[in-house]
Amino acid sequence: MYFDSVEAMLAMEGHGVFVWSAYVVTAVVIALILLLPLRRQRRLLRELAADERRARAVAANARGSS
């Protein structure tokens, strides 16, 4: 470990703001490009499942009434 304390690690001899902001923004970008497709996939599956249930309910109704 190069730094002696947490404060020294955060400050990085005056460069901390730059280093940490670069890392934080990159982390946000990475999180976004990973989570957005996952969220889209989950939403699609949920919608499809709902469609499927509705279709089955309609089919069951039709069978029940005839």
């Binding site: 990085m12 001899e13 005056g14 460069h15 901390g16 730059f18 280093v19 670069a22 890392y23 990159t26």
Partner: peptide
């Protein structure tokens, strides 16, 4: 100094 550490993501 320490600012070069950005290289690891840049």
């Amino acid at each position: 100094g320490n600012s070069y550490r950005i290289i690891y993501i840049h």
